[in-house]
Write a protein that binds this DNA or RNA. Structure first.
Lengths: 245, 245
DNA sequence: CGCTGTGTTGAAGGATGTCAATTACCGTGG
DNA sequence: CCACGGTAATTGACATCCTTCAACACAGCG
C-alpha cells in the first residue's frame, strides 16, 4: 500500500513475446524463435492501466518503452500555456514512449482511453539485446522510422487539408489499422471523444461533430454517437485525395 | 559522363568525423576518439548538392543517411493529389533520410535551399557499427527520438496555434538552432521563400508575408525581404506562449 | 430519476484563404 | 554599367471555412 505513488498493477506471469498473438505487428517482427526467447527474458512484465489513467506523463523519467497489448491509448503534448495537442492514438501492437529516448524524460502524456494492458520493455536492456540481435535492431529502427513517417503524414494533414479531408483520412487510417488486427473494415467504435479527435486533427469538437453529420447526410457513414459504420469507403478515399475540388 | 543518372559530385577526400567541427552536434556526440576513428571508416564520402537540386526523392531506394555538413535543406512530403507539405528545414549537423529506414524507400524529397554539402552515412554499415559501439547506438537512438519529439512540436503548432504564434515559434526555433551553431541570435537570412515557410507552418504565403509585416509594425522584427533582425525576442516568446489572449 | 459528461445543431463573427495588382530584387545579357 | 525579365514579396479587397457562443439532446451512472 505504501510503496509506489501511482498504484501500478504488475503482472509478472505468462508474458512471452514468443507466444504473443501480436508478434506479427509488434517488436518481434522478423525475429526467429531463438531470438524471441531472448526477447522474452527482457519483456517479462505487464501493466494494467484503467481507462482514464496515465501510463506516463510528460517530465517523468524515461525507463521503458511500452507495447500496447490490449486497449487503446492517446498521447498528447502540452505547450507552456496549457494548450494541448493529441499527437496520436495507439492500439494493440503499437509502441509507446519513443519520445522519451532523446532526453531520458517522457515528453508527452500517454492516457488509456479504455482499460488496457501494456508490456513493459526496459529500454536499456532493449538496447543491449539489439546489439546482439541484429533482427531486433532492424525492427526497432523500422518502428522509429515509421513513427517519423506517420508524423509527417499528420503534418501534411494538419498543414494542408480541410476539415472533411482530415476526418476522412483519420477514419480511413483507423479502420485500416483495425482491419490489420482482424476487425471489421466497416464498423468501428470510437474510443475517443469528439474533442480528442478534434485535438488530433486541429479542429474544434463542434467542427468534428458537424463533419460527422455531414458525412452521414451524404451517405458516407452511419453515425450513432461513437459507433461508426462506413458505407462508402471509396467515397471517403476520394475526399482525402481532394477529388471534390 | 555516361555513368550515374543524376550527376553526383562525390568527394572521397578529407572526410573525417573525428576531425569535424560539427561533431558536437551530429552523430559523433558522446563518442570517444577511438570510436570516432571507427566511424571515420564508415563516413568516408561527401556529396555536393547545388541549390535547388534534390539530395533524394520520395520513392527512391534508401541506402544512406546524410548529415548536413554545410548549407541548408528542406524536406517535403506529397500527397497523391499533388499537395505538398514542407516537413522540416535542416542545417549543419542535422541528419536527413531517417524516414527511409522503415520501408527501405525514401518517403520525402530533400531539396537544397543553398549550395550544400552532405556526408554520406551508409545505413547498414551504421547499423553494423552501432552494434559494436554502444555510444554510437545511443546517439543514433537519441537523434531519432528527438526527431519524433520535434515532429510532435510541429503538430502542436499546426494543430493549435494561430498564424502569429506559428511564425513567432518558427523564427525562435530557427534562431536558436543558428545560435547553437555560432551565429547571431538576432540576425538571420532566411534561406526559404515565403511559400516554403507557409507550407511548413500550414499557412498561405500571403499570410506569412502579412504576419512578417505585422511583426515589423509592432516592433518585434526588422524585415527586409529575407533578411530578418529580431528586435524583441521576449515579445516573440510571449506571443508563442499565448500571452496576448 | 436526476446529474454530468458528451454530442448535436444553429447563428454570428473572425481568422485565414483567394484573387489580383503592384513593387522589389536578382541574375542575365546587352 | 544599365536595362530587362522573371521570380519573390507585399498589400488590398473580398470570400470562405472554421470557430465561438449558446441552447438543447442524449446516454451512462450514481
Amino acid at each position: 500500500m505504501s510503496t509506489a505513488t501511482p498504484p501500478l498493477r504488475l503482472e509478472p506471469f505468462k508474458v512471452a513475446c514468443s507466444n504473443c498473438n501480436l508478434r506479427e505487428l509488434c517488436l518481434p517482427v522478423g525475429m526467429s524463435n531463438d531470438q524471441l526467447l531472448k526477447l522474452d527474458t527482457l519483456v517479462s512484465t505487464r501493466r494494467t492501466v484503467q481507462r482514464g489513467d496515465t501510463l506516463f506523463r510528460s517530465g517523468e523519467a524515461f525507463q521503458s518503452l511500452y507495447a500496447v497489448r490490449t486497449g487503446f491509448f492517446k498521447t498528447c503534448v502540452a505547450s507552456e500555456d496549457g494548450r494541448d495537442q493529441v499527437t496520436g492514438f495507439q492500439m494493440a501492437g503499437e509502441l509507446l514512449g519513443l519520445d522519451g529516448i532523446g532526453t531520458e524524460r517522457h515528453t508527452c502524456d500517454a492516457v488509456a482511453l479504455e482499460d488496457s494492458q501494456v508490456c513493459i520493455i526496459p529500454f536499456h536492456q532493449l538496447e543491449d539485446l539489439s546489439r546482439e540481435v541484429s533482427d531486433l535492431q532492424r525492427q526497432f529502427h523500422r518502428i522509429m522510422s515509421r513513427e517519423i513517417v506517420r508524423d509527417h503524414g499528420v503534418m501534411l494533414l494538419l498543414g494542408s487539408m480541410r476539415a472533411e479531408e482530415r476526418l476522412a483520412a483519420f477514419l480511413l487510417n483507423l479502420t485500416q489499422r483495425l482491419q490489420s488486427r482482424g476487425f471489421s473494415a466497416s464498423e468501428l467504435i470510437l474510443r475517443m471523444t469528439r474533442e480528442e479527435i478534434g485535438s488530433y486533427l486541429g479542429l474544434k469538437l463542434e467542427t468534428v461533430s458537424r463533419t460527422f453529420s455531414k458525412f452521414q447526410d451524404e451517405g458516407f457513414l452511419e453515425v450513432k454517437q461513437r459507433q461508426i459504420r462506413i458505407l462508402d469507403q471509396d467515397g471517403l478515399q476520394r475526399l482525402v485525395n481532394g477529388a471534390n475540388c
